[in-house]
Design a protein around this nucleic acid. Sequence first.
DNA 1: GTCTATAATTCGATAGAC
DNA 2: GTCTATCGAATTATAGAC
Lengths: 192, 192
Amino acid sequence: MKKLTKKELFFEKTLKLISEKGFKATTMRDIAHELNFEVANVYNYIDSKESLLENYIFGTLDEFIIYLENIVESSYSPVEKLKFVISKHAQYAINKPYEVALFVYEWRNLKGDKLQEFKEKRSNYMYTVRQIIEEGISEGQLREMDGEFATFMFFSSMRWLFSMITNDDIKVNPIEIEKQLTDFIFKGIENK
Amino acid sequence: MKKLTKKELFFEKTLKLISEKGFKATTMRDIAHELNFEVANVYNYIDSKESLLENYIFGTLDEFIIYLENIVESSYSPVEKLKFVISKHAQYAINKPYEVALFVYEWRNLKGDKLQEFKEKRSNYMYTVRQIIEEGISEGQLREMDGEFATFMFFSSMRWLFSMITNDDIKVNPIEIEKQLTDFIFKGIENK
DNA sequence: GTCTATAATTCGATAGAC
DNA sequence: GTCTATCGAATTATAGAC
Protein backbone atom coordinates (compact mmCIF):
# COMPACT_ATOMS: atom_id res chain seq x y z
CA MET A 1 0.00 0.00 0.00
CA LYS A 2 1.47 3.29 -1.13
CA LYS A 3 1.71 6.05 1.41
CA LEU A 4 -0.17 9.16 0.39
CA THR A 5 1.12 12.69 0.87
CA LYS A 6 -1.14 15.12 2.69
CA LYS A 7 -1.97 16.75 -0.59
CA GLU A 8 -2.93 13.47 -2.23
CA LEU A 9 -5.01 12.56 0.78
CA PHE A 10 -6.81 15.89 0.59
CA PHE A 11 -7.81 15.45 -3.06
CA GLU A 12 -8.76 11.82 -2.59
CA LYS A 13 -11.04 12.44 0.39
CA THR A 14 -12.52 15.57 -1.14
CA LEU A 15 -13.30 13.81 -4.39
CA LYS A 16 -15.11 11.00 -2.60
CA LEU A 17 -17.10 13.43 -0.51
CA ILE A 18 -18.20 15.57 -3.45
CA SER A 19 -19.12 12.60 -5.60
CA GLU A 20 -21.30 11.15 -2.86
CA LYS A 21 -23.05 14.28 -1.63
CA GLY A 22 -22.99 16.32 -4.83
CA PHE A 23 -20.86 19.36 -5.55
CA LYS A 24 -23.34 22.02 -4.49
CA ALA A 25 -24.39 20.09 -1.40
CA THR A 26 -20.80 19.69 -0.23
CA THR A 27 -19.60 22.73 1.71
CA MET A 28 -16.09 23.81 2.52
CA ARG A 29 -16.97 22.98 6.12
CA ASP A 30 -17.83 19.43 5.10
CA ILE A 31 -14.46 19.09 3.44
CA ALA A 32 -12.62 20.56 6.42
CA HIS A 33 -14.49 18.27 8.80
CA GLU A 34 -13.64 15.23 6.69
CA LEU A 35 -9.97 16.10 6.99
CA ASN A 36 -10.15 17.01 10.68
CA PHE A 37 -9.09 20.62 10.39
CA GLU A 38 -10.67 24.06 10.11
CA VAL A 39 -12.29 25.65 7.07
CA ALA A 40 -9.49 28.10 6.38
CA ASN A 41 -7.05 25.24 5.84
CA VAL A 42 -8.93 24.05 2.79
CA TYR A 43 -7.49 27.05 1.01
CA ASN A 44 -3.98 25.75 1.56
CA TYR A 45 -4.75 23.20 -1.15
CA ILE A 46 -7.06 25.00 -3.57
CA ASP A 47 -7.83 28.50 -4.81
CA SER A 48 -11.60 28.17 -4.81
CA LYS A 49 -14.40 25.65 -4.78
CA GLU A 50 -14.93 26.38 -8.46
CA SER A 51 -11.37 25.51 -9.50
CA LEU A 52 -11.63 22.26 -7.55
CA LEU A 53 -14.45 21.02 -9.74
CA GLU A 54 -12.74 22.19 -12.92
CA ASN A 55 -9.58 20.26 -12.14
CA TYR A 56 -11.39 17.01 -11.47
CA ILE A 57 -13.62 17.18 -14.52
CA PHE A 58 -11.05 18.25 -17.09
CA GLY A 59 -8.58 15.77 -15.71
CA THR A 60 -10.99 13.02 -16.65
CA LEU A 61 -12.17 14.51 -19.93
CA ASP A 62 -8.72 15.24 -21.31
CA GLU A 63 -7.50 11.74 -20.55
CA PHE A 64 -10.39 10.23 -22.51
CA ILE A 65 -9.81 12.57 -25.42
CA ILE A 66 -6.15 11.64 -25.75
CA TYR A 67 -6.90 7.95 -25.53
CA LEU A 68 -9.59 8.19 -28.21
CA GLU A 69 -7.24 10.06 -30.53
CA ASN A 70 -4.75 7.21 -30.28
CA ILE A 71 -7.44 4.68 -31.08
CA VAL A 72 -8.73 6.62 -34.07
CA GLU A 73 -5.27 6.90 -35.57
CA SER A 74 -4.73 3.15 -35.29
CA SER A 75 -5.44 0.63 -38.04
CA TYR A 76 -7.90 -1.48 -36.05
CA SER A 77 -11.36 -2.25 -37.42
CA PRO A 78 -14.37 -0.25 -36.17
CA VAL A 79 -15.48 -3.10 -33.90
CA GLU A 80 -12.01 -3.48 -32.45
CA LYS A 81 -11.81 0.27 -31.92
CA LEU A 82 -15.14 0.22 -30.08
CA LYS A 83 -13.95 -2.58 -27.87
CA PHE A 84 -10.93 -0.49 -26.91
CA VAL A 85 -13.20 2.42 -26.03
CA ILE A 86 -15.48 0.19 -23.95
CA SER A 87 -12.46 -1.24 -22.21
CA LYS A 88 -11.15 2.23 -21.42
CA HIS A 89 -14.52 3.27 -20.02
CA ALA A 90 -14.83 0.11 -17.98
CA GLN A 91 -11.31 0.33 -16.58
CA TYR A 92 -11.74 3.98 -15.72
CA ALA A 93 -15.09 3.38 -14.04
CA ILE A 94 -13.60 0.52 -12.05
CA ASN A 95 -10.42 2.29 -11.03
CA LYS A 96 -11.70 5.85 -10.73
CA PRO A 97 -15.44 5.68 -10.02
CA TYR A 98 -15.56 9.00 -8.19
CA GLU A 99 -13.94 10.91 -11.02
CA VAL A 100 -16.59 9.43 -13.29
CA ALA A 101 -19.36 10.49 -10.93
CA LEU A 102 -18.22 14.10 -11.04
CA PHE A 103 -17.82 13.97 -14.78
CA VAL A 104 -21.32 12.60 -15.28
CA TYR A 105 -23.33 14.41 -12.62
CA GLU A 106 -21.58 17.65 -11.78
CA TRP A 107 -20.48 19.23 -15.05
CA ARG A 108 -23.54 21.51 -14.90
CA ASN A 109 -21.91 23.36 -12.06
CA LEU A 110 -19.05 24.52 -14.24
CA LYS A 111 -19.28 28.20 -15.06
CA GLY A 112 -18.68 30.51 -17.99
CA ASP A 113 -15.81 29.59 -20.29
CA LYS A 114 -15.17 26.32 -18.51
CA LEU A 115 -18.73 25.16 -19.09
CA GLN A 116 -18.42 26.06 -22.75
CA GLU A 117 -15.11 24.25 -23.06
CA PHE A 118 -16.58 21.15 -21.45
CA LYS A 119 -19.55 21.02 -23.79
CA GLU A 120 -17.41 21.42 -26.89
CA LYS A 121 -14.88 18.78 -25.92
CA ARG A 122 -17.56 16.32 -24.91
CA SER A 123 -19.47 16.94 -28.10
CA ASN A 124 -16.36 16.31 -30.18
CA TYR A 125 -15.63 13.13 -28.27
CA MET A 126 -19.11 11.75 -28.85
CA TYR A 127 -19.01 12.71 -32.51
CA THR A 128 -15.77 10.83 -32.99
CA VAL A 129 -17.21 7.68 -31.41
CA ARG A 130 -20.31 8.06 -33.56
CA GLN A 131 -18.13 8.09 -36.67
CA ILE A 132 -16.55 4.80 -35.63
CA ILE A 133 -19.99 3.27 -35.06
CA GLU A 134 -21.30 4.46 -38.42
CA GLU A 135 -18.20 3.10 -40.10
CA GLY A 136 -18.96 -0.25 -38.47
CA ILE A 137 -22.51 -0.14 -39.78
CA SER A 138 -21.55 0.75 -43.32
CA GLU A 139 -18.94 -2.02 -43.34
CA GLY A 140 -21.57 -4.51 -42.13
CA GLN A 141 -19.89 -5.45 -38.85
CA LEU A 142 -22.69 -3.76 -36.93
CA ARG A 143 -26.37 -4.24 -37.69
CA GLU A 144 -28.36 -1.56 -39.50
CA MET A 145 -29.40 0.98 -36.91
CA ASP A 146 -29.53 4.64 -36.11
CA GLY A 147 -25.98 5.81 -35.44
CA GLU A 148 -27.14 8.52 -33.09
CA PHE A 149 -29.12 6.10 -30.94
CA ALA A 150 -26.26 3.69 -30.80
CA THR A 151 -23.86 6.43 -29.77
CA PHE A 152 -26.10 7.56 -26.94
CA MET A 153 -26.38 3.99 -25.78
CA PHE A 154 -22.66 3.68 -25.85
CA PHE A 155 -22.20 6.53 -23.43
CA SER A 156 -24.94 5.51 -21.09
CA SER A 157 -22.80 2.45 -20.45
CA MET A 158 -20.36 4.46 -18.39
CA ARG A 159 -23.15 5.66 -16.14
CA TRP A 160 -24.39 2.16 -15.75
CA LEU A 161 -20.94 0.95 -14.83
CA PHE A 162 -20.69 3.66 -12.25
CA SER A 163 -23.98 2.61 -10.65
CA MET A 164 -22.78 -0.95 -10.47
CA ILE A 165 -19.37 -0.20 -9.12
CA THR A 166 -20.44 2.17 -6.39
CA ASN A 167 -23.20 -0.19 -5.26
CA ASP A 168 -21.99 -1.61 -1.98
CA ASP A 169 -23.99 -4.81 -2.33
CA ILE A 170 -22.01 -6.01 -5.29
CA LYS A 171 -18.57 -7.56 -5.36
CA VAL A 172 -17.05 -6.53 -8.63
CA ASN A 173 -14.69 -8.68 -10.64
CA PRO A 174 -13.06 -6.19 -13.00
CA ILE A 175 -12.48 -8.70 -15.77
CA GLU A 176 -16.00 -10.01 -15.60
CA ILE A 177 -17.62 -6.59 -15.51
CA GLU A 178 -15.86 -5.60 -18.71
CA LYS A 179 -16.90 -8.81 -20.41
CA GLN A 180 -20.54 -8.40 -19.36
CA LEU A 181 -20.57 -4.84 -20.62
CA THR A 182 -19.03 -5.75 -23.97
CA ASP A 183 -21.43 -8.66 -24.39
CA PHE A 184 -24.35 -6.47 -23.57
CA ILE A 185 -23.48 -3.75 -26.03
CA PHE A 186 -22.80 -6.18 -28.85
CA LYS A 187 -25.30 -8.96 -28.21
CA GLY A 188 -28.11 -7.50 -26.09
CA ILE A 189 -30.03 -9.81 -23.80
CA GLU A 190 -32.04 -11.94 -26.20
CA ASN A 191 -31.22 -15.62 -26.72
CA LYS A 192 -30.97 -16.36 -30.41
CA MET B 1 -53.56 23.48 -26.36
CA LYS B 2 -54.97 23.20 -22.89
CA LYS B 3 -54.99 26.31 -20.77
CA LEU B 4 -53.03 25.93 -17.57
CA THR B 5 -54.10 27.26 -14.21
CA LYS B 6 -51.64 29.44 -12.33
CA LYS B 7 -50.89 26.57 -10.04
CA GLU B 8 -50.16 24.19 -12.91
CA LEU B 9 -47.99 26.81 -14.55
CA PHE B 10 -46.03 27.24 -11.34
CA PHE B 11 -45.22 23.56 -11.01
CA GLU B 12 -44.44 23.17 -14.68
CA LYS B 13 -41.99 26.06 -14.84
CA THR B 14 -40.43 25.18 -11.50
CA LEU B 15 -39.91 21.59 -12.54
CA LYS B 16 -38.17 22.61 -15.74
CA LEU B 17 -35.96 25.07 -13.90
CA ILE B 18 -34.88 22.61 -11.23
CA SER B 19 -34.22 19.82 -13.69
CA GLU B 20 -31.99 22.05 -15.80
CA LYS B 21 -30.03 23.83 -13.09
CA GLY B 22 -30.13 21.16 -10.41
CA PHE B 23 -32.12 21.25 -7.19
CA LYS B 24 -29.43 22.70 -4.95
CA ALA B 25 -28.36 25.24 -7.53
CA THR B 26 -31.92 26.51 -8.02
CA THR B 27 -32.85 29.11 -5.43
CA MET B 28 -36.28 30.30 -4.38
CA ARG B 29 -35.30 33.60 -5.96
CA ASP B 30 -34.63 31.83 -9.28
CA ILE B 31 -38.09 30.32 -9.13
CA ALA B 32 -39.73 33.65 -8.30
CA HIS B 33 -37.87 35.35 -11.13
CA GLU B 34 -38.95 32.67 -13.60
CA LEU B 35 -42.57 33.37 -12.68
CA ASN B 36 -42.19 37.13 -12.63
CA PHE B 37 -43.07 37.70 -9.01
CA GLU B 38 -41.36 38.10 -5.64
CA VAL B 39 -39.79 35.41 -3.48
CA ALA B 40 -42.49 35.46 -0.83
CA ASN B 41 -45.09 34.40 -3.41
CA VAL B 42 -43.40 31.07 -3.96
CA TYR B 43 -44.76 30.07 -0.59
CA ASN B 44 -48.31 30.51 -1.84
CA TYR B 45 -47.77 27.27 -3.74
CA ILE B 46 -45.49 25.20 -1.54
CA ASP B 47 -44.60 24.71 2.11
CA SER B 48 -40.86 24.44 1.64
CA LYS B 49 -38.20 23.76 -0.95
CA GLU B 50 -37.80 20.31 0.55
CA SER B 51 -41.43 19.31 0.08
CA LEU B 52 -41.27 20.48 -3.53
CA LEU B 53 -38.62 17.91 -4.38
CA GLU B 54 -40.40 15.18 -2.46
CA ASN B 55 -43.64 15.69 -4.37
CA TYR B 56 -41.97 15.53 -7.77
CA ILE B 57 -39.88 12.46 -7.02
CA PHE B 58 -42.49 10.34 -5.27
CA GLY B 59 -45.05 11.27 -7.89
CA THR B 60 -42.82 9.61 -10.47
CA LEU B 61 -41.71 6.69 -8.34
CA ASP B 62 -45.17 5.69 -7.15
CA GLU B 63 -46.55 5.73 -10.68
CA PHE B 64 -43.84 3.32 -11.83
CA ILE B 65 -44.40 1.04 -8.87
CA ILE B 66 -48.12 0.71 -9.52
CA TYR B 67 -47.57 0.05 -13.20
CA LEU B 68 -44.99 -2.64 -12.48
CA GLU B 69 -47.33 -4.36 -10.01
CA ASN B 70 -49.96 -4.61 -12.73
CA ILE B 71 -47.45 -6.12 -15.13
CA VAL B 72 -46.19 -8.65 -12.62
CA GLU B 73 -49.69 -9.86 -11.84
CA SER B 74 -50.43 -10.41 -15.52
CA SER B 75 -50.00 -13.70 -17.39
CA TYR B 76 -47.56 -12.36 -19.99
CA SER B 77 -44.23 -14.08 -20.59
CA PRO B 78 -41.05 -12.58 -19.06
CA VAL B 79 -39.99 -11.09 -22.40
CA GLU B 80 -43.41 -9.56 -22.95
CA LYS B 81 -43.38 -8.17 -19.42
CA LEU B 82 -39.98 -6.59 -20.03
CA LYS B 83 -41.22 -5.01 -23.21
CA PHE B 84 -44.07 -3.42 -21.27
CA VAL B 85 -41.62 -2.04 -18.74
CA ILE B 86 -39.37 -0.66 -21.48
CA SER B 87 -42.38 0.88 -23.13
CA LYS B 88 -43.46 2.52 -19.88
CA HIS B 89 -39.97 3.93 -19.34
CA ALA B 90 -39.76 5.19 -22.89
CA GLN B 91 -43.17 6.80 -22.84
CA TYR B 92 -42.52 8.43 -19.51
CA ALA B 93 -39.13 9.75 -20.61
CA ILE B 94 -40.68 11.14 -23.78
CA ASN B 95 -43.71 12.72 -22.15
CA LYS B 96 -42.23 13.73 -18.81
CA PRO B 97 -38.48 14.17 -19.29
CA TYR B 98 -38.09 16.69 -16.47
CA GLU B 99 -39.73 14.44 -13.92
CA VAL B 100 -37.29 11.76 -14.97
CA ALA B 101 -34.37 14.15 -14.59
CA LEU B 102 -35.30 14.90 -11.00
CA PHE B 103 -35.87 11.25 -10.28
CA VAL B 104 -32.49 10.27 -11.65
CA TYR B 105 -30.25 13.14 -10.58
CA GLU B 106 -31.79 14.78 -7.53
CA TRP B 107 -32.96 12.01 -5.22
CA ARG B 108 -29.76 12.47 -3.17
CA ASN B 109 -31.16 15.74 -1.92
CA LEU B 110 -34.05 14.06 -0.16
CA LYS B 111 -33.65 14.06 3.59
CA GLY B 112 -34.26 11.75 6.53
CA ASP B 113 -37.28 9.48 6.27
CA LYS B 114 -38.01 10.51 2.70
CA LEU B 115 -34.55 9.50 1.56
CA GLN B 116 -34.97 6.16 3.28
CA GLU B 117 -38.38 5.63 1.74
CA PHE B 118 -37.02 6.43 -1.71
CA LYS B 119 -34.16 3.97 -1.44
CA GLU B 120 -36.41 1.17 -0.25
CA LYS B 121 -39.03 1.66 -2.92
CA ARG B 122 -36.45 1.94 -5.68
CA SER B 123 -34.65 -1.14 -4.42
CA ASN B 124 -37.88 -3.12 -4.42
CA TYR B 125 -38.70 -1.94 -7.93
CA MET B 126 -35.32 -3.02 -9.27
CA TYR B 127 -35.53 -6.34 -7.51
CA THR B 128 -38.90 -7.06 -9.09
CA VAL B 129 -37.55 -6.31 -12.55
CA ARG B 130 -34.56 -8.49 -11.84
CA GLN B 131 -36.86 -11.40 -11.00
CA ILE B 132 -38.56 -11.04 -14.37
CA ILE B 133 -35.20 -11.03 -16.13
CA GLU B 134 -33.99 -14.10 -14.27
CA GLU B 135 -37.22 -15.88 -15.06
CA GLY B 136 -36.58 -15.10 -18.73
CA ILE B 137 -33.08 -16.52 -18.48
CA SER B 138 -34.16 -19.73 -16.76
CA GLU B 139 -36.91 -20.23 -19.33
CA GLY B 140 -34.36 -19.75 -22.14
CA GLN B 141 -35.95 -16.70 -23.73
CA LEU B 142 -32.97 -14.60 -22.65
CA ARG B 143 -29.37 -15.68 -23.13
CA GLU B 144 -27.34 -16.93 -20.18
CA MET B 145 -26.02 -13.89 -18.35
CA ASP B 146 -25.66 -12.28 -14.98
CA GLY B 147 -29.11 -11.16 -13.87
CA GLU B 148 -27.71 -8.33 -11.82
CA PHE B 149 -25.77 -6.90 -14.74
CA ALA B 150 -28.75 -7.14 -16.99
CA THR B 151 -30.93 -5.39 -14.46
CA PHE B 152 -28.52 -2.50 -14.12
CA MET B 153 -28.38 -2.20 -17.87
CA PHE B 154 -32.11 -2.12 -17.98
CA PHE B 155 -32.30 0.90 -15.73
CA SER B 156 -29.52 2.78 -17.39
CA SER B 157 -31.82 2.85 -20.40
CA MET B 158 -34.03 5.46 -18.77
CA ARG B 159 -31.08 7.76 -18.28
CA TRP B 160 -30.01 7.28 -21.84
CA LEU B 161 -33.49 8.09 -23.06
CA PHE B 162 -33.47 11.22 -21.01
CA SER B 163 -30.20 12.36 -22.55
CA MET B 164 -31.58 11.78 -26.00
CA ILE B 165 -34.88 13.48 -25.42
CA THR B 166 -33.54 16.61 -23.79
CA ASN B 167 -30.89 16.99 -26.49
CA ASP B 168 -32.06 19.93 -28.58
CA ASP B 169 -30.28 18.74 -31.70
CA ILE B 170 -32.46 15.70 -32.08
CA LYS B 171 -35.99 15.53 -33.38
CA VAL B 172 -37.55 12.62 -31.57
CA ASN B 173 -40.11 10.31 -33.11
CA PRO B 174 -41.68 8.66 -30.04
CA ILE B 175 -42.53 5.44 -31.85
CA GLU B 176 -39.07 5.12 -33.31
CA ILE B 177 -37.26 5.89 -30.08
CA GLU B 178 -39.09 3.10 -28.30
CA LYS B 179 -38.31 0.66 -31.09
CA GLN B 180 -34.62 1.56 -31.11
CA LEU B 181 -34.44 1.14 -27.36
CA THR B 182 -36.17 -2.23 -27.41
CA ASP B 183 -33.96 -3.45 -30.25
CA PHE B 184 -30.88 -2.30 -28.43
CA ILE B 185 -31.72 -4.02 -25.20
CA PHE B 186 -32.65 -7.28 -26.87
CA LYS B 187 -30.29 -7.44 -29.83
CA GLY B 188 -27.30 -5.22 -29.01
CA ILE B 189 -25.42 -3.63 -31.88
CA GLU B 190 -23.65 -6.56 -33.50
CA ASN B 191 -24.70 -7.87 -36.88
CA LYS B 192 -25.16 -11.60 -36.73
C1' DG C 1 0.12 24.40 8.13
C1' DT C 2 -3.04 25.38 11.64
C1' DC C 3 -5.83 28.24 14.12
C1' DT C 4 -9.45 32.27 15.44
C1' DA C 5 -12.13 35.77 13.77
C1' DT C 6 -14.76 37.84 10.61
C1' DA C 7 -16.06 39.93 6.18
C1' DA C 8 -19.36 39.77 2.42
C1' DT C 9 -22.86 37.51 0.36
C1' DT C 10 -26.64 34.43 -0.35
C1' DC C 11 -29.91 31.31 1.29
C1' DG C 12 -34.75 29.61 2.91
C1' DA C 13 -38.45 31.32 5.21
C1' DT C 14 -41.79 34.57 7.74
C1' DA C 15 -44.51 38.85 9.12
C1' DG C 16 -47.72 41.86 7.91
C1' DA C 17 -49.80 45.53 4.86
C1' DC C 18 -52.57 46.04 0.67
C1' DG D 1 -52.20 36.73 -4.40
C1' DT D 2 -48.86 40.18 -4.36
C1' DC D 3 -45.81 43.17 -2.33
C1' DT D 4 -41.90 45.24 1.00
C1' DA D 5 -39.04 44.34 4.62
C1' DT D 6 -36.41 41.57 7.23
C1' DC D 7 -34.68 37.68 10.11
C1' DG D 8 -31.48 34.07 11.17
C1' DA D 9 -28.67 30.78 9.39
C1' DA D 10 -25.33 29.13 6.15
C1' DT D 11 -22.04 29.94 2.56
C1' DT D 12 -17.39 31.09 0.28
C1' DA D 13 -13.46 33.34 1.17
C1' DT D 14 -9.84 36.31 3.49
C1' DA D 15 -6.78 38.45 7.23
C1' DG D 16 -3.53 37.78 10.36
C1' DA D 17 -1.48 35.55 14.65
C1' DC D 18 1.06 31.38 16.09
